[in-house]
């Protein structure tokens, strides 16, 4: 059985700086120059204030796990990778991303501090994953 391809992002003029940043090891989010809020995912207008004056900035790459799941039944091309952990991470800048948690030998929990680590998927796509750096007090 041939392996089905994994979803590949179709780059556009919103997303290109983000994905090119991943290849360079830089996590890029946007900041609105009008209302000063951070924005993710990248877009052409600020969802907070309607301004079109958005600039890409480098995020610190630090965040906190908002929620997660350990996937035991993956779909299609991901079925052989189970179990793996998908999380929503709140970056310190105040935006939320979906990601994978890696290098979590002792598991992961909500509230754990994590840092970005760029990881090359088997098909060459570089994705921003996160790994734990500090367990939350529980």
């Amino acid at each position: 059985m041939t392996m089905q391809a994994k979803p590949v992002p179709v780059l556009d003029t919103d997303s290109r700086p983000f994905w090119e940043g991943c290849r360079q090891g830089v996590l890029r989010i946007q900041r609105c120059k009008t209302c000063a809020r951070y924005v993710f995912y990248p877009r052409s207008i600020c969802p907070h204030c309607m301004s079109d004056d958005l600039v890409f900035v480098e995020a610190k790459g630090l965040g906190t796990v908002y929620t997660y799941t350990v996937v035991h039944r993956g779909f299609g091309p991901f079925q052989d990778e189970v179990p793996f952990t998908i999380a929503l991470v709140d970056l310190d800048e105040g935006v939320r991303m979906m990601t994978r948690i890696v290098d979590a030998g002792e598991g992961i929990g909500i509230g754990d501090r994590v840092e970005v680590v760029f990881s090359e998927r088997d098909d060459g796509l570089v994705l921003p994953y996160f790994r734990p750096i500090l367990k939350a007090k529980r």
């Binding site: 994994k6 979803p7 992002p9 983000f18 995912y41 996937v71 793996f84 991303m97 979906m98 994705l127």
Partner: peptide
Amino acid sequence: EQYEAPFGLP
């Protein structure tokens, strides 16, 4: 959709 699907969440 490109900011979620590549990570493999079913």
